[in-house]
């Protein structure tokens, strides 16, 4: 792969208490591409993605070994502030989790806490832009001050994406963003992901191989806490090099 590498992990081990959740993960993620992480549930793919913006810090018993390098900086080194890191590496969760505030306030939340907008007008503009980018603006422009929880599931998820891109991160992590949505909403989000990949590096965890095939350029297959195989998406789905990958893709395990 000739692209610039945005994230690379070296010998990453993750423990929950005494239990080892991930073992020796070495993975490189290219810039402004979509990388999907697939594997059966409990294989550690969600754990892995949560390491990339140190969301696992909020879990007391979670412990991480090894190096995760983003833009030549080890994000687990002492100098790195998780707050700053998360402003750079945004995240969208499995279940849409809009804050119990208005749509506007949901999107304005990030810019407000980080002090990204100098004036109210600038903030308005930023919120509008973000909603436009998330493809939500047309649908909700008349009710921007209604609570975010009043939207449908798919709209809520796009609101969460809008919220994330409002702080202009460089990387967006998506943890099974469509698993709680119906097929139509899923299609809309997938289209959005394609669009976003022009500007952002995207890492997406998905349980659906079809989705991985549709949206991503690179795919990594996790199994039982190990990274089994990584490669171009087409290649993984047509000619996997590992038997386990083959078994998973053909439905023998999973």
């Amino acid at each position: 792969m000739a692209e610039k590498i945005k994230i690379s992990t070296k010998k990453v081990n993750v423990f929950y208490g005494d239990k080892k959740a991930l073992e020796n993960i070495n993975l490189e993620i290219p810039e402004k591409k979509v990388t999907s992480l697939i594997g059966p549930s409990g294989c550690g793919k969600s754990t892995f993605i949560r390491c990339l913006n140190r969301m696992n810090d909020t879990i007391d018993i979670c412990r991480i070994e090894g190096k995760i390098i983003i833009d030549n900086e080890d994000i687990y080194s002492k100098e790195i502030d998780p707050v700053l890191l998360r402003a750079k590496v945004g995240m969208v969760f499995q279940k849409p989790n809009p804050f119990p505030k208005s749509i506007f306030e949901n999107v304005a939340y990030g810019p407000r806490i980080h002090g990204l907008a100098k004036s109210d007008d600038e903030l308005d503009e930023l919120v509008t832009q973000s909603l436009v980018k998330a493809g939500l603006f047309q649908e909700i422009k008349d009710r921007i001050h209604e609570p975010g929880t009043s939207l449908s599931g798919g709209q809520q998820q796009r609101l969460c994406i809008a919220r994330t891109i409002a702080i202009s991160p460089q990387i967006i992590l998506m943890d099974e963003p469509c698993s709680a949505l119906d097929p139509i909403a899923t299609a809309v989000i997938e289209e959005l992901i394609d669009e976003l990949a022009k500007n952002f590096t995207i890492v997406i965890v998905t349980h659906s191989m079809q989705q991985a095939a549709r949206v991503s350029q690179q795919t990594a297959f996790f199994h039982m806490g190990n990274l089994i195989e990584v490669g171009l998406t087409d290649q993984i789905f047509s000619t996997p090099s590992q038997k386990k990958t083959q078994d998973y893709i053909t439905g023998k395990i999973g």
Binding site: V83, L84, A87, K88, I113, H114, G115, I167, S168
Partner: peptide, 16 residues
């Protein structure tokens, strides 16, 4: 883009 991160970093002192 980096401009954004600089602003975040700037805000961090007070926020901390």
């Amino acid at each position: 883009m980096t401009n954004n991160l600089d602003r975040v970093e700037l805000s961090l002192v007070g926020r901390k």
